[in-house]
Simulated assay, not measured.
Amino acid sequence: MLTALRIFFPFILSLGLTYAQYDLVVYGATPQGVTAAVAAAQEGLKVLLLEPGRGVGGVLTRGWLATLDLAEDREGLLQGGLFRDFYRRIGKEASFDVVQAEQAFWAMLREAGVEVRLEVPLDRVGVEAGRLTLLETPMGTVGAPYFVDATDTADLAFRAGASFTQGREDTGLDGRSMAATLVFRMEGLPWGAVFLALNYEGQVRRTGAGAWERSG
């Protein structure tokens, strides 16, 4: 499962002043991209959020990773900040509806005044003296003093010449990537029956199965 808040720390790339139409350009409308853009806009910056895909929310909404790993103590949820705002908007449930989650992200962006453009792939990046200065996209050239790469693949950082390791190389192991989570949708199954069957398996047969809220 994806640890909530681990998603909220994007990679700040560089500083440049050419073609500065915005104070900050965030590339990638993943959860970390949305929250970086919202946080900056709430501080008064003019922010542009670009996304190569068709929606916002990344793995939570486009990848259907619809269960959060929450950290709680006896007084309640430990995570705060913008995550807590998002959590409130999806009904304060660890498992959530992906459509509702995307609507929550859109509401946060709209309320913060972030300009959002979808389906904007990168054509080229401009780098001057080791600093990223502009992006060339089908919508035109975009410049800003600051850029954030919030993509899952670090596409912008790679094109800008940032150093990187692949897979587990940074630990001195190999270049293999982390296994992906298989997520699929089923139709025609009554959730109530699935819920009871999984909990029966776990509690009576001790198989480790279980179900709660929207997840099994």
Score class of each variant (00 low, 15 high):
A4W: 01
P10T: 02
P10N: 02
F11P: 00
I12F: 15
S14I: 00
G16A: 09
G16L: 03
Y19F: 12
A20H: 10
A20L: 04
D23K: 03
V25R: 04
Y27S: 01
T30R: 04
T30G: 05
P31Y: 05
Q32M: 12
Q32F: 14
G33S: 11
G33P: 04
V34M: 01
V47H: 10
L48R: 01
G53F: 01
G58D: 00
R62Y: 14
G63M: 04
G63I: 01
A66M: 08
L68G: 07
D69Y: 12
A71D: 06
E72C: 10
G76F: 08
L77V: 06
L77W: 10
L78C: 08
F83G: 04
F83I: 00
F86N: 01
Y87D: 02
R89Q: 10
R89K: 13
I90Q: 03
I90Y: 05
K92A: 12
E93P: 00
F96V: 01
D97A: 06
V98S: 14
V99N: 12
Q100S: 10
A104E: 04
F105Q: 00
M108E: 02
M108A: 01
M108K: 00
E111Y: 12
L118M: 11
L122R: 02
D123P: 00
R124G: 03
R124S: 10
G126D: 05
E128M: 09
R131M: 08
L132N: 06
T133H: 05
L134A: 15
E136Y: 04
E136Q: 07
T137E: 08
M139T: 09
G140P: 03
G140M: 07
T141C: 09
T141A: 14
V142R: 03
V142W: 07
G143N: 05
Y146F: 15
F147P: 00
T151W: 09
R159L: 15
R159Y: 15
T165D: 12
G167E: 10
G172I: 02
S177W: 15
A179R: 14
V183A: 15
V183P: 02
F184L: 04
M186A: 13
M186Q: 07
P190Y: 10
V194W: 08
V194Y: 10
L196W: 12
L196A: 14
A197G: 06
A197R: 09
Y200N: 03
R206P: 00
G208S: 06
G208Y: 07
R214C: 06
S215Y: 11
